[in-house]
Design a protein around this nucleic acid. Structure first.
Length: 423
RNA sequence: GGAGAGGUGGCCGAGUGGCCGAAGGCGGCCGCUUGCUAAGCGGCAGAGGGUUAACAGCCCUCCGAGGGUUCGAAUCCCUCCCUCUCCGCCA
């Protein structure tokens, strides 16, 4: 959520920033300004009446104590009450509308973010690693996985439909190894390991920005009014909602492995084959709760921590800075890490590292008391470290041999318990 | 699922329908004292919002949430939510 005060004071600045995301957004701001003005007009009058009521009620108390008659004043207060009730109803309506608009406005892009419309305009920051050369035609991971007997797409769809996959034998073990490997790596870098609930309340998703706008992308357990998490970012970031932290509590580094559940509404036909896009996938997530002063340094470090996983696994990747049009709803600035997929001859997203500044903190009301005693919103960051399924796919493709076997990256061998996976 | 207890400020905890936004304690901040630390003494300090150029000030709201009774509710009534304890069931 944006700061209403900022919208009031610098509407043109806010509109300019938002229009770099989407040309339609400034209209929203005009509606908000309008409602905000209405709200304050009603509120001022309402408070005047309430103040009058309060003082008269007090007077009644005093008069009664002296044994005087209070019929007249009581009638006056009753009349006030009617007006107050009316205004309160009006205020409720306006505030509801205002809030629902505010919750649908995305975050402002940071000034350093390149202006652009879609992923075409993203900017490559750096590349790492050697792209492997094959003396044969490299196969896609789904072919490798099926031939190795470690990915079973038929069984997945038999149980749950499209975009579900059964991991079998070394496939399951590789997954488990990757999760442990990643968690250990992050823990060594100072992240506290968390194992959070996978079902959360609506307000938790509102806190991180998935609701109300992206309801369609979520699985919901209607009977209990709970949602399956689309990423561990949701429970981790919300861990400190409605809290006032001490300044010295910051920064807080968290990591968690969880499955992620996404309906993938609107991505029909994309990545139909393989395990790149699934309704359920495993991910190790990184979350930081930090002081506003150094959140951008923290973003650089967080991105490096995610990159580190690929370096250890010796998988070639590049880092891309998202342009304004490609930025997620809650993010001010985002680096995507993309890993090389030989069969596709291109880099594909495997991590997304964002600084949300105080956008989520404001929704969650996560604050800290600064040295002058003032309560301020924290900044929140998150990034995948990494998407496990995609990492597994990238290993299959980059480490494949001509006979269809797959070498296990050195760093992973102890975790997996084998050097090679063979058919 | 059944029975009971309870939800108050950063935390603990008191609260008679009307100077209670709330005693007291812990923790915090600022002084003083002390060679330093600790202790002691004195003082400051809940959150959100409106008004304002801003501060001070003034005002409004908030004692789990939502209704109700009343001139007036943390305090009385109703509904819901949550937590805890015991029993049952269960990984």
């Amino acid at each position: 959520m944006l700061d209403i005060e900022l919208i009031r004071k610098k509407p043109d600045f806010v509109k300019e920033r938002l229009s770099t995301r989407d040309k339609e957004l400034p209209t929203l701001i005009d509606q908000i300004l309008d409602l905000d003005k209405k709200r304050r007009t009603i509120l001022t009058e309402l408070e005047r009446l309430r103040s009058e009521r309060n003082s008269k009620s007090k007077e009644i108390g005093l008069l009664r104590r002296e044994g005087k008659d209070t019929k007249d004043i009581e009638a006056q207060v009753k009349a006030l009450k009617e007006k107050i009730d009316q205004l309160e109803e009006q205020l409720r309506e306006v505030e509801e509308d205002l809030r629902s608009l505010m919750l649908r406005v995305p975050n402002l892009p940071h000034e350093s973010v390149p202006i652009g419309e879609d992923e075409e305009d993203n900017v490559e920051i750096r590349r790492w690693g050697e792209i492997p050369k094959f003396s044969f035609e490299p196969k896609p991971h789904w072919e490798l996985g099926e031939r190795l007997g470690i990915l079973d797409f038929e069984k997945g769809s038999k149980l749950s439909g499209s975009r579900f996959t059964v991991f079998k034998g070394w496939g399951a073990r590789l997954t488990r190894a990757l999760i442990n490997f990643m968690l250990d790596l992050h823990r060594e870098r100072g992240y506290v390991e968390i194992s959070p609930p996978h079902l959360v309340k609506p307000e938790i998703l509102e806190g991180t920005g998935q609701l109300p706008k992206f309801e369609e992308d979520l699985y919901k357990c209607e009977r209990d009014n709970l949602y399956l998490i689309p990423t561990a970012e949701v429970p981790l970031t919300n861990l400190f909602r409605n809290e006032i932290l001490k300044e010295e509590d910051l920064p807080i580094y968290l990591t968690a492995y969880t499955p992620c559940y996404r309906r993938e509404a609107g991505s029909h036909g994309k990545d139909i084959r393989g395990i790149i896009r699934q309704h359920q996938f495993d991910k190790v997530e990184l979350v930081k709760i930090v002081h506003p002063e150094n959140s951008y340094e923290e973003l650089e470090k967080l991105t490096e921590d995610a990159e580190r996983v690929l370096k250890e696994l010796e998988l070639p990747y590049r880092v891309v800075e998202l342009c304004t049009g490609d930025l997620g709803f809650s993010a001010s600035k985002t680096y995507d890490i993309e890993v090389w997929f030989p069969s596709q001859g291109k880099y594909r997203e495997i991590s997304s590292c964002s600084n949300c500044e105080d956008f989520q903190a404001r929704r969650m009301r996560t604050r800290f008391k600064d040295s002058s005693g003032k309560n301020r919103f924290v900044h929140t960051l998150n990034g995948s470290g990494l998407a496990v399924g995609r990492t597994l796919a990238a290993i299959l493709e980059n480490y494949q041999k001509e006979d269809g076997s797959v070498e296990v990256p050195k760093a992973l061998r102890e975790y997996v318990g084998t050097d090679f996976i063979k058919p």
